[in-house]
Structure formats: C-alpha cells, structure tokens
Design a protein around this nucleic acid. Structure first.
Lengths: 190, 190
DNA sequence: ACAGCCATGTAACTCGTTACATGATTAC
DNA sequence: GTAATCATGTAACGAGTTACATGGCTGT
C-alpha cells in the first residue's frame, strides 16, 4: 500500500483535511496524523471505516507524494508533521466527488448473519443475541449523539451535521426493527 | 487464503450449506460451488458480502480439509463436486454461533461519505447524488422483495424470512430518511 | 515516579479481489 | 452453430490489519 492511486479511504481522509482549508489559509497549522486519526474516529467510523493508525500515516505519505497534501515538518527531539490539503488536493477531491462512480453501500452485519442461522441455535439464543445487540446499538447511538452535539449549528458544519442526523435516524429505525423482531420471536409457534 | 482457520465468511458459507442438512440426509446431493455462489448472491449479499466465485471454491477446499464439509466427486469429462455439511461441520458452526464474539455491524456508505463533503460540490450536486441513490435503493428493494417472496411461509425458512424482512424494513426506512434529507437540502438557506 | 496521552513509523500477514485459463451442457 | 449458462480452478495483486518498536510530554 501507499503505492499507486488513491483509494476511497484516501479521499475520505483528504476530505477530512478539507474542512481546515480556511483556517489553514489564515495561518493555522494543519493536522498531525494522530489528530487526523481522531477525526476519522469521530466521523468516518459511523458510515465508512476507522482506519488503523498505521494506515493513516501510510495514506498521508502517499497523498504527500502525489502532491495532494503538504506537510509542515517540525524537527525537534521528535519530528512532528502537520498536514494540510493543497490546492491540487482540493481539485483532485472535487474531481473524484463529481466523476468517480458511486457504489452502493455495503453492510457487514454479523447479527443478521446469525439470525439467518437461527435454526441451529433456537429462538432463545437468538433472542439473547438480539437483546445484546440492542444494548450495543444504544451505546453507539449515544456516541453519535455526542458527536452531533459537538457540531452544534455552525453552518460550516452543515453537511457533517446532516450525515450525523442520518446516522441517528438509522440507529433509531434499527432499534425499532430489532424490537419488532424480538416480539416476533416471542410469539412464534416455533 | 484457504490455509488456517475459518473466517466469518467461511462460517457464513458453511451456514448456507446447513439448510440442506435434511434433504442431503435423505439422499439428495449437496451443492456445487456454482450453486453455492448463487445462494450467497441471493442471501448474504444483502447484509454480508457476495464472495467472488474464486473465493467460494477456495473456501470449500478449506472447509473440506478441515472436515467441515464433504464432497461427492463425479468424475466425467469434467469433474464436478457437490458439497454437503458434515456432522463435524454442524457442531463447528453451532460452536462458532454460540461462542464467537459478535462484532458490531460495519457500514461502508459512499453516499454518506459524499454528503459529508458537500461543501466542496454544493447542494445541487448533492441533491442529484441523493436522487440517484433513491433510484438504486428502489431497485435493491425490488430484488430483496423477490427473494423474500421466494421464501414464502415455509416454516423451515422462518429465520431467512425474518432476515429478509429486516432488510426490507431497512430499505424502507433508508428511503424515508433520504427523502427527508432531500427536502432539507431544498429548504436550506445555503 | 508513574500513568496516560501524544506522536510516528515498519514488517508481516490476512482477506478478498480481479485477471486469467479452461471446458461441458443446454436452449434456440 | 452459437450464445448462454454451468462449472472449476490458479496466480497476481491490493487494501487494510495486527504486532512490533520507539520515545516525548503532561498531569498527579
């Protein structure tokens, strides 16, 4: 990895850097890999992926080689690098957004997979599993609520807020659907 | 691949073979790799993955080496193999279902990712993209409806039917949410 | 002094994909 | 006869992960 063309994840990370275009232009420094990792954790995690730390650094290296990001290197006892998107990076990102094909979302849902195989475990085990899932969903939703709250109504964060609200709707609907499934399992003449 | 321990996808495929336990015990042959691929396309695709054909054969080879499936080899001009789950395979699958940790679902949502970066393209482009997505969602839903209909109310297919209904609810809710987002974009004082 | 966070990177490995290669059988 | 579908497999590659390695800075 790190060779060749950017992937969707590369563009996703580049996109996270694009939110600092203005503040960086006004003289503020960019983000360290560490900080970018945290931003990815707070946003991308809910509807894309949360790349491993090591991958963040690899991707930043690739984007830099391609001229899509630039780094402020601060040599000290320990060298730290702050990355910002370049004008080339912004155009590349815009080009990708407008021309690349948009794939249909992919869901990897271990809970649904286990429900499919319910005939091997029986309704009690399945109910237990779904109840566990409800607990996890509640927690996830609380995490996303906190993220959403941190965005406030800052108009510059309008799109991120929409995405967060989308996610919150999704978790609410999923909880509702799982609740229906649990009731259906109870009343099933198994 | 094909070495070492089964992955979640291995168990998913093994699980698909588990639906034929009874008919196979009654003397019917198992499934070819080709047929298993189709079954995966009709079920797993909607909430797990649709493995490449080449991977199906690789996984079957691994499961066989592990003794979790057995093959009826029919040598002819062309050798064909029909696979069925073994008793060991059934216990391994049950063991996995009851003891392996259940991960939280992962969503890879390119549409949400693009919405996040709407500040780079503007509300018109974002609306166009979301409308495209609505069309794709409609189509996907129609495909899953057909799968659901093919399950009928056969009690042996009760769990697969629940999973399909779950998916249909998800598509319905997603369409609703995207509709709301489209209206929000229209009325936004961007 | 010690914990916890900030910060960076390499190496080995796994999962899964695409590309390639082959050929039989069935329906028109 | 020819197109579509049935059927099987290998090789090369890519994207991302975990494990490993290192060390500074900050608060208690």
């Amino acid at each position: 990895m790190g060779q060749g063309a950017p992937t969707t994840t590369s563009y996703a990370l580049l996109g996270l850097l694009s939110f600092d275009r203005d503040t960086v232009a006004a003289g503020e420094p960019g983000l360290t890999g560490y900080e970018l990792k945290q931003r990815a954790y707070n946003t991308l995690r809910f509807y894309w992926v949360s790349p491993a730390t090591s991958q963040i650094y690899t991707e930043l290296g690739r984007l830099q080689r391609l001229g899509l990001v630039a780094a402020d290197v601060r040599a000290g006892r320990r060298t730290t690098r702050r990355y910002r998107i370049t004008p080339d990076g912004t155009s590349a990102l815009r080009g990708w957004l407008t021309t690349a094909e948009i794939e249909f979302p992919v869901l990897k849902h271990p809970v649904a997979l286990r429900l499919l195989l319910g005939h091997l475990t029986g309704p009690d085990e399945v109910s237990r599993m779904l109840s566990d899932y409800v607990g996890q969903l509640d927690q996830r939703r609380a995490e996303l609520r906190a993220v959403r709250a941190s965005l406030g109504d800052d108009p510059r964060m309008g799109y991120p807020a929409m995405v967060a609200d989308w996610g919150l709707d999704y978790y609410r609907d999923e909880l509702r659907t799982v609740g229906r499934l649990l009731r259906r399992l109870e009343s099933a003449p198994e």
